[in-house]
């Protein structure tokens, strides 16, 4: 029996265009979805439960608007859904502190999360949470085998490595070969009725503040050619103009 926690985050749809209005991103018109890597984490957590028994609790940090990502996780099959109530933007230290409080309070043998969230792309949460809990951690795993300890496959210099991970541990998941299950009608109905368990923890002040958001610098227009024969000229320019060959 394993007590499993999975961390999920709501992010803008990865196919959406991001606009900056004034000096902040404007996400008002953007659809919100579960961060794609978190889907792999949820699937890994469910497979762990299905193999060893136990329960999966999905946790998110956010305001009431973030309940949807928990309902989505519930529809796929997690047992419990917990939201740590917080409307403020948190830096990595504040977020991990609050998550460490939540994991300690709920208790767990293993925490799964995505390798990074699709909005920040930082990937700090998994390893940072593990350090705060005094647990082992592995990042960017592409497969996980479950037992008294975990055996994971993750990238290493020149290929991959199979690594033994003692529990408790935090595992951040990459895509790998995992196929994510889709919610069925029963799951969706259960998710609608499911109650979100809301917790409050003390949140430390953030020491990193956002000064501004901006669009990426525009690139000057490039050179355009018609027809495959132009590839010879492009090859010359790559050597003589760009100096990259």
């Amino acid at each position: 029996m394993a007590n499993i926690i999975v961390l999920v985050k709501q992010v803008p749809d990865t196919n959406a265009r991001i606009a900056v209005s004034g000096d902040r991103v404007d996400l008002s018109a953007v659809k919100k979805v579960m961060s794609p890597y978190d889907e792999f984490a949820v699937e890994t957590a469910l497979q762990h439960r299905d193999s060893s028994g136990g329960e999966v609790t999905a946790i998110t940090v956010g305001g009431a608007g973030a309940d949807k990502v928990l309902k989505d996780a519930k529809a796929i099959g997690v047992d419990h859904i917990v939201r740590v109530d917080c409307d403020a933007e948190l830096d990595s230290n504040a977020l991990q502190s609050v998550l460490a409080s939540a994991v300690s309070s709920l208790g767990a043998d293993v925490v799964y999360c995505g390798k990074s969230a699709a909005d920040t792309g930082a990937g700090s949460t998994g390893p940072g949470l593990a350090e705060r809990l005094g647990w082992s951690s592995v990042s960017n795993t592409i497969s996980v085998a479950y037992g008294d300890q975990l055996s994971v496959v993750m990238p290493a210099s020149g290929g991959n490595a199979r690594v033994n991970v003692p529990l408790p541990a935090v595992v951040s998941c990459d895509k790998g070969n995992i196929k994510v299950r889709k919610p069925n009608v029963k799951g969706i109905m259960q998710a609608k009725k499911a109650k979100v368990d809301v917790h409050n923890f003390e949140i430390p002040a953030s020491t990193i503040s956002v000064v501004s958001h901006s669009m990426p610098p525009a690139k000057p227009a490039g050179k355009s050619y018609q027809g495959g024969a132009a590839a010879a000229e492009v090859a010359q320019l790559l050597r003589d103009e760009a100096n990259v060959i």
Binding site: G222, K223, S224, Y225, G227, G228, A230, A231, A232, V234
Partner: peptide
């Protein structure tokens, strides 16, 4: 976003790029 854009099928352009490089 391209610094050098070639409007052509890959079948047409790739062998030329390959032999030039």
């Amino acid at each position: 976003h391209a610094d050098y854009g070639i409007v052509a099928s890959w079948e047409e352009a790739l062998p030329v790029l390959q032999s030039s490089l």
